[in-house]
Simulated assay, not measured.
Amino acid sequence: MLTRAVRQGLAAGLAGAVVMTAAEKVEQRVTGRPDSYVPARVLARLTGLPESSGQQPRWQNLAMHYGQGALVGVLRSVMAQAGLRGAWASTMFTALRLTNDQILENAIARCTSSSTRSPPERWPTRSPLVTARARGSGTRRCAPVATQMSVHCPGRQ
């Protein structure tokens, strides 16, 4: 079961990350918000890669963004395998997804001399809503993929 959950979760997480990326790009066009390089900075700090000031390498941003999506997709798949499905499970997973971001971005920042991002309560007024909406779009797309895959598991009632 665990091997299946990992495979299915990686696929579901990547699907969710694709949808989340598309939703963020639409939001950026509407609001004029620039690209965020926080994922690249977190990846650089986690791996010891050099950080540059300002714009980070795009590959680092994409690697962290899609890698993190795939990994948390495994958690969503395990939730579906355990019977946690539907709107309530998706809401729980959205909270987990946002918490995951904050843990990585703020815990890594505490290990270095500078911060990558401030806590949500210090964000500009619309920022938490925009972030939650974007993460929610990805988690809502990841959930049906994970659930559908778990329903078709041999031996699962």
Score class of each variant (00 low, 15 high):
L129F: 07
G83E: 09
V78K: 03
I108D: 03
R97F: 14
S127D: 10
G83I: 13
S115F: 06
G69Q: 05
V78Y: 07
G86R: 09
S113Q: 09
V26M: 07
W59Q: 06
L43M: 10
P39Y: 15
R76V: 12
A82H: 08
D35Q: 14
V74Y: 02
V72R: 00
L75I: 15
S113D: 10
G69E: 03
R76N: 14
S137G: 03
A109F: 05
L46F: 04
P120D: 10
V30I: 15
P57F: 10
A134W: 06
E105V: 11
A132G: 07
G67H: 06
R33F: 06
N106V: 01
V26Q: 03
E27H: 03
T139E: 08
D101E: 07
V130K: 09
V38M: 10
R141W: 09
Y37V: 01
T112L: 05
A82E: 12
M64H: 11
E105M: 13
R85C: 04
Q60M: 14
A80E: 08
G69C: 09
R122Y: 14
D101I: 01
P120R: 01
T47E: 04
L75V: 15
R133Q: 08
A95D: 05
L46P: 09
T47K: 08
F93A: 13
R122K: 14
I103E: 02
P119L: 15
V72F: 04
T139S: 06
H65Q: 06
M92C: 14
R33Q: 14
R41I: 04
T131I: 07
E27M: 11
F93Y: 15
R33C: 05
E51V: 03
T112W: 13
T131Q: 02
D101L: 00
T112F: 15
C142V: 05
V26N: 09
S77K: 02
G54D: 11
G86D: 03
C111T: 12
E105A: 14
G73S: 13
Q56G: 11
G54A: 04
P124K: 03
S90Y: 09
A134R: 13
A107Y: 03
